[in-house]
């Protein structure tokens, strides 16, 4: 257990957390502004990854692939919002859950129909391959460092958009009182479409970025979606800041738990049992974290009182 290993694992956890943040930021924004629980957010993540893999293999350009993922997912989000999601804003949560569950089925099977069941691969571009040397003698993959930096830039951009621009003011006002906002002359349905497409674009981007380190396959979105739910339950629904803190916590807990819990148990068990028990408990660690936060603060760390 060296310092280098610990530092690498912390960076891995951060990278995972930042990618979760891109997912959960959109999800929490959509819930905060429109009051909609969107299970199909994971499908948009998948669409981004598939578009990126297709464009990358056709053109060979990673930048074009990312642009395709971003714009394609945003477009898909806007279309879905205008045709189906729009009808759900005034419905109860059960209807929202079912309709977006139906969308998952349609998107997943549709993708399987077009691309087949075999996973696609998206390569890390040559200029981002290899490792960088960090202070303290840590060798860390350049691509993962790029993900962390890129994610932080997007997070900063998002928070600037929400706090400093006119559009951000309208979005925040929409969270508080939608009738008042539309009475003041803001086209609320356009605003909703924009927020949904923004969330979709972030999800699609995350899918494309992660697609280069994992395989691109049908059903890749839902495990991430459920983790993003855990994130926003921890952070508090509707809070971007909560999503950032929550995703970092979840990313670190998941990564570090998987490495350190088996080692921890091996202090007082034989190795085989310790690996078994440790990895079983590690697989539950983020949910235990969520339970603790909930018992302590039922509306999450930064959630408003219901």
């Amino acid at each position: 257990m060296s310092f280098v290993l610990i530092a690498e694992q912390i960076l891995n956890g951060l990278q995972f957390g930042i990618m979760l943040f891109l997912m959960s930021a959109g999800l929490t924004l959509i819930f905060g502004v429109m009051g909609l629980i969107n299970l199909a957010h994971g499908s948009l993540y998948m669409i981004g990854a598939f578009l990126a893999a297709t464009v990358a293999s056709a053109t060979g350009s990673f930048i074009l692939a990312l642009a395709a993922a971003l714009s394609g997912a945003a477009l898909a989000g806007a279309i879905v919002e205008m045709t189906i999601i729009r009808k759900l804003y005034n419905r109860d949560h059960l209807d929202q859950v079912l309709a977006t569950f139906a969308l998952i089925l349609i998107f997943s099977e549709g993708t399987r129909w077009v691309f087949g069941s075999f996973p696609l691969y998206l390569d890390v571009p040559s200029y981002l391959q290899g490792a960088v040397k960090l202070p303290g003698g840590i060798q860390y993959p350049l691509y993962r460092i790029t993900l962390i930096v890129f994610g932080l830039i997007i997070g900063a951009g998002l928070s600037l958009l929400i706090t400093k621009t006119r559009l951000g003011i309208q979005i925040r006002a929409g969270e508080n009182d939608r009738e008042m906002v539309s009475a003041l002359g803001v086209n609320i349905s356009k605003l909703y479409t924009f927020v949904f497409a923004l969330g979709a674009a972030l999800a699609g981007l995350a899918g494309a970025l992660v697609g280069a380190i994992q395989s691109v396959e049908v059903g890749m979105g839902e495990p991430v979606l459920i983790l993003a739910f855990v994130v926003i339950v921890i952070g508090g629904i509707g809070s971007i800041k909560g999503a950032l803190i929550g995703s970092t916590l979840v990313g670190l807990t998941d990564t570090l738990g998987g490495i350190f819990l088996p080692k921890f148990f091996s202090l007082f068990m034989d190795l085989a049992t310790a690996t078994n028990v440790g990895s079983s408990i590690a697989s539950m660690s983020i949910y235990i974290l969520m339970s603790i936060v909930l018992v302590w603060r039922p509306t999450g760390l930064f959630g408003q009182k219901v």
Partner: peptide, 28 residues
């Protein structure tokens, strides 16, 4: 744990607990 909350929180938390059981069973 989950009935401390209502509405969307409850949906997400029950989903998360089922997922926890899923991962627990795969790693056991």
């Amino acid at each position: 744990i989950s009935l401390k909350t209502t509405g969307v929180y409850f949906i997400m938390i029950t989903l998360a607990f089922a997922q926890m059981m899923y991962y627990f069973s795969t790693s056991w």
